[in-house]
Nucleic acid binder design. Structure first.
Length: 490
RNA sequence: GGCCCUAUCGUCUAACGGUUAGGACAUCAGGUUCUCAUCCUGAAAAUCGGGGUUCGAUUCCCCGUGGGGCUGCCA
């Protein structure tokens, strides 16, 4: 199977775009087929520099790698494959050739109507409560007149001649049987006066020559599909299958917009979402496996995805579940991988972290306490700078550590831990030792552990006391306990 | 206005004629834990309305209603 993602380079990769790209990618991979990226830059005014690179970068981040077409190689935009070029502005001659064919076969006609006249026509039609449609003024023009006006340089377009009495029907891969009446379909412009094709002509030509098996695109294309089917028919080509995926919506159920939500994939990259979590989330929007599985790797998705389990109605892009997924994915990362990915973030605040041989042992302690890497530096602060606990932190009413017994607890803590051999300074030994200490003095374990943890971290919450003490080592632990004792006697 | 699509908890969704309408997120209430998280248990929460068809409709059909898309020499 050959599928494609064909964005217009008008900005950044939209989350909805990622969703259709993902569907196309999954389908291709599932069938051991080919996933193609094509750039549809037929609107010169809307094209934005860097857009192609940005989109490819975002796609790459998500783990969606094209097999053919436009892709990034060593950071450079390149094209690969035998059916190129894969950028529409480089295929103009091809579109013009087939436009001519359509003209010759009588399925298209030249139109000289100016934008101004068309605008006036539409206004009048609307005033009469009619559907705005081209009135076919130019369809009556004689060949000689058409030729004369073209040679004299008069601006013109090419329009599709839609049969008024036909019903155009097809079977959508997601929506099932679909049908449209010819007389409700406008005579679409195929070739603009600047010689560029419109989307309608260009994608039909490209999907044919690139041998695309299923076109997966947003629901906004549903009502122009009959025009595309007509084009395939008139050009004598077999049309691909079409699958129109439902749109993503704002909270108020309007079409997902920049005003109301973050819509570019880049924004989610910047917010620190894991590509695994984001792809997982996007995949579950409008699709479900039919089981209770919620966590999916890209591999899982390739295995499980199918168009017939796609939803027909639009889905609100509500990122609440994304945050949960993010937490799930953070916790699922192997400890070494987690350490590798947080390191840059932590090193930015604490440069020594990058030379820390025990970095993984430390990040292991915070892995299930963070949702975003950006939270890591604060949670690891006590490893890279002296903590500054206050008396009010060390004593804690809820833990039954009063200001009165605090000195005694700290003293016992210090003496007892000093007696633990450096060789035996492990979590389990510490746990055993401290339990004994608590029992011996008739204290609850929390009465011992709270002040210890507070003295070591200076934080109201952090990883557990045993773990922190073990990670910090004996000398630092004793030193910090002593510092705490000095603090409360001041 | 016309054409087309669509409709289950707040959200994402399951149930493809027969279920106490299921799961997940979020919410709330408990529990585990030295704190915070994690984790565990539980609760509350939905078939848009009206007609049909059928022994029986969330499910099929029709009509409304709501929402969405298209209606550009944009894609």
């Amino acid at each position: 199977m050959r599928t494609r993602f064909a964005p217009s380079p008008t900005g950044y990769l939209h989350v909805g775009g990622l969703r259709t790209a993902l569907s196309a990618y999954l389908l291709a991979k599932q069938s051991k087929g080919t996933f193609i990226v094509r750039i549809e830059d037929t609107d010169r005014e809307r094209s934005v520099p860097d857009a192609v690179e940005n989109m490819l970068t975002a796609l790459h981040w998500a783990g969606i790698h094209p097999d053919e077409g436009v892709m990034l190689e060593k950071g450079l935009i390149t094209q690969k494959g035998t059916r190129g070029p894969y950028i529409q502005s480089e295929r103009l001659a091809l579109y013009r050739h087939h436009a001519q064919e359509l003209l010759k076969s009588g399925h298209a006609y030249v139109c000289f109507c100016s934008p101004k006249r068309l605008e006036k026509m539409r206004t009048e039609q609307e005033a009469r409560k009619q559907a705005p449609m081209y009135d076919r003024t130019c369809i009556k023009l004689k060949d000689e007149e058409v030729q004369r006006r073209i040679t004299s340089g008069e601006p013109h377009v090419l329009r599709l001649k839609v049969p008024r009495n036909e019903i155009i029907a097809y079977e959508d891969e997601i929506r099932g049987p679909m049908s449209f009446q010819g007389h409700t379909i406008d005579d679409q412009v195929l070739l603009k006066s600047d010689g560029f094709p419109t989307y309608h002509l260009a994608h039909v030509v490209d999907d044919h020559f690139m041998d695309i098996s299923v076109v997966i695109r947003g629901e906004e294309w549903l009502s122009s599909t009959p025009k595309h089917l007509l084009l395939f028919q008139y050009l004598g080509w077999k049309p691909p299958r079409y699958a129109h995926v439902p749109l993503l919506l704002n909270k108020d159920r309007t079409k997902l917009s920049k005003r109301q939500s973050a819509v570019s994939v880049e924004e989610y990259v910047q917010k620190g979402y894991l590509p695994e979590a984001f792809v997982n989330f996007i995949a579950l929007l409008g699709w479900n496996p039919g089981t209770t599985q919620e966590i999916f790797t890209l591999e899982d998705l390739i295995e499980a995805f199918s168009l017939d389990r796609m939803q027909k109605a639009g889905a609100i892009f509500d990122t609440e579940k994304l945050d949960w997924l993010q937490g799930q994915w953070i916790r699922r990362l192997p400890a070494a991988e987690f350490a590798k990915r947080v390191l840059p973030v932590v090193a930015e605040k604490y440069p020594p972290a990058s030379r820390d041989k025990d970095f993984t042992a430390k990040t292991r302690l915070i892995q299930e306490r963070v949702t975003f890497f950006s939270e890591a530096p604060a949670l690891l602060s006590f490893f890279y700078e002296e903590p500054t606990p206050s008396v009010d932190l060390l004593a804690n009413a809820k833990q039954k550590v009063s200001h009165e017994i605090l000195p005694k607890i700290l003293e016992e803590l210090s003496n007892t831990l000093d007696g633990v051999l450096t060789d035996e300074w492990t979590e389990s030994v510490l746990s055993e030792t401290l339990k004994k200490l608590a029992e011996g003095n008739g204290w609850k374990i929390g009465q011992v552990l709270w002040p210890l943890r507070a003295a070591l971290t200076g934080l109201p919450y952090s990883p557990g006391a045993y773990e922190v003490a073990a990670a910090l080592g004996k000398d630092v632990t004793i030193a910090r306990l002593e510092a705490a004792r000095r603090l409360i006697t001041q």
